[in-house]
Nucleic acid binder design. Structure first.
Length: 470
RNA sequence: GGCGCGAUGGCAGAGUGGUCAUGCAGCGGACUGCAACUCCGUUAACGCCGGUUCGAUUCCGACUCGCGCCUCCA
């Protein structure tokens, strides 16, 4: 039984989709004015793992993640760069796709862009005005009338009076109330804009998600997700807009990923303490980064540091050491399960962990137990080892992990300025010759020399293999 | 000020009202020419103070500390 923590109710509850077997999920995506950082990567990987798992358990998932391709920051940045909004956003969308491809994040089923849904946005605003939940103001903006929506604040337990008194928002004369937020922003000179019944302008941030989710998934859908800083005000405002306009529940389950921290502070654009995905990928294998993110529960914070990345690398090495040398069949084969009865029990425990609000750390601990068993089986039963190893690969695949050739992962790619594979192989041959002559002084000298360059040798009955240490 | 979250062994990180997390590191063995890989064994924890209970790291309350949202931010 799948249980998911719901931000709305603040507790875990059994998950039940609107339509049996079908899950409609909307996740707030990126505002594309800069390269994605590790915090973005976390949300991407988190919902990628969730989608993969749900599909592995035979749910049909329609995963929609939007792209915000027009807003203040984009306009500002495009202007600074001397390029058009479209040039900037196209560039950043391409970069985002590169980053997520590297991390093994599967593309969402739909990636709607705000600028491609202006008609739906205008229609939604019209409905809100008709129903009295929104009003065009004297300055050309259209605002949402927050106090008209009785349930405002239900997602994050805010009450309107507290919000009003604690409001840090500058009072805008055009607004009826400081809490009101903008649905349609009147155009300023030199900005991109679209025509509307209320004058030229562009959509406010919150309305696009209400419009696009309605367009892609309907008035009510199963899961709405996003990053840690979105519940208030973004998601609160989405609820206000959609439920007022559509007259029904917006999303049944709200899921929010935890923050990535640096030195105990949230990694964020405004603090300037962020590391872009491409920066990190320049130093670490993408799978190491993915493992670093997956080994902590999705709702907890993660502290970003070089040490944690290195630790993630060491943990992956244990998996690949175990997998190395097991000759797996080319394609998945159910009959393999017969080779080792214990595989099924591990699988059940893995599912049990994932069914409990996607507990990836616990699921990974099961994989480690499987590795321990695998290492033992390798010494006793080839067929059982193959069966268990293929199960490890299958389950890890649900997390998007262990998809590389083990030997290639362990050896790593040749790098400029470091000893290359051919040179290593040559030294190993020299060492083996020395060993054959029982000239251990010489053979140890070669091994030590390689170790100094980060190359570790491993002798076995089959010969000498090597890997680069992390 | 309002609304939330967290505090677990040297580190990372799950979890549970009474018995094992898991990984890294450490220690002792096995394997090895010596190592590496691997295996076996092992050390070690539940912020502080009360309460409930036969029993609490786990439930309840207070406290301390840390963090997030309340302005754009995943």
């Amino acid at each position: 039984m799948l249980q998911i923590y719901n931000t709305l109710t603040k507790q875990k509850a059994p998950f039940k989709p609107l339509v049996e077997g079908q899950i409609n999920m909307y996740v707030c995506g990126i505002t594309v004015y800069d390269y994605c950082h590790i915090g973005h990567a976390r949300v991407m990987v988190c919902f990628d793992v969730i989608t993969r798992y749900l599909r592995a358990r035979n749910w049909r998932v329609n995963y929609v993640r939007n792209i915000t391709d027009v807003d203040d920051k984009i306009i500002k940045r495009a202007h600074e760069n001397g390029e058009t909004v479209e040039q900037l956003t196209e560039r950043m969308i391409a970069a985002m796709h590169e980053d997520e491809d590297a991390l093994g994040v599967l593309r969402p089923d739909q990636e709607p862009k705000a600028t491609a849904h202006i008609d739906e946005i205008l229609a939604l605003i019209s409905t809100l005005i008709e129903k009295g939940f929104a009003y065009p103001a004297s300055n050309g903006d259209v605002y949402y009338r927050v106090e008209r929506f009785a349930e405002y604040g239900k997602l994050t337990n805010q009450n309107v009076d507290e919000l009003r008194s604690g409001s840090r928002v500058e009072v805008d004369e055009a607004k009826e109330s400081p809490l009101d937020f903008v649905l349609w922003k009147a155009v300023k000179p030199g900005e991109v804009s679209w025509e509307s019944p209320w004058g030229a302008g562009r959509p406010g941030w919150h309305i696009e998600c209400s419009a696009m989710s309605k367009c892609c998934l309907g008035d009510t859908f199963d899961i709405h997700g996003g990053g840690p800083d979105l519940p208030f005000p973004h998601h609160e405002n989405e609820i206000a807009q959609s439920e007022a306009a559509n007259g029904c529940t917006y999303a049944n389950h709200w899921m929010h990923a935890g923050p990535v921290r640096v030195n105990s502070e949230k990694m964020s654009k405004s603090l300037g303490n962020f590391f872009t995905i491409r920066d990190v990928l320049a130093k670490y294998d993408p799978e190491v980064v993915r493992f670093f993110l997956a080994r902590v529960h999705y709702r907890s914070y993660i502290d970003y540091s070089e040490d944690s990345l290195k630790e993630a690398r060491v943990m992956l090495e244990r998996f690949y050491q175990a997998l190395n040398g097991v000759s797996l069949p080319k394609s998945a084969d159910e009959s393999l399960d017969a080779g080792y009865e214990g595989a099924k029990a591990f699988e059940l425990r893995f599912y049990e962990a994932m069914d409990d609000d996607f507990n990836t750390p616990k699921a990974i601990s099961v994989l480690f137990e499987m590795v321990n068993e695998l290492n033992k089986l390798k010494k006793t039963s080839e067929s059982a080892a193959v069966a268990l190893a293929s199960k490890v690969l299958e389950l890890a695949g649900i997390l998007g992990l262990l998809q590389q050739n083990p030997d290639a992962f362990l050896k790593g790619a040749d790098k400029e300025g470091e000893i290359n594979a051919a040179a290593i192989e040559q030294l190993i041959e020299q060492r083996n010759a020395a060993k054959a002559n029982k000239d251990y002084a010489q053979s140890d000298k070669i091994r030590d020399a390689l170790a100094e360059q980060g190359v570790i040798l491993k002798d076995s009955r089959e010969g000498t293999s090597w890997f680069r240490e992390s």
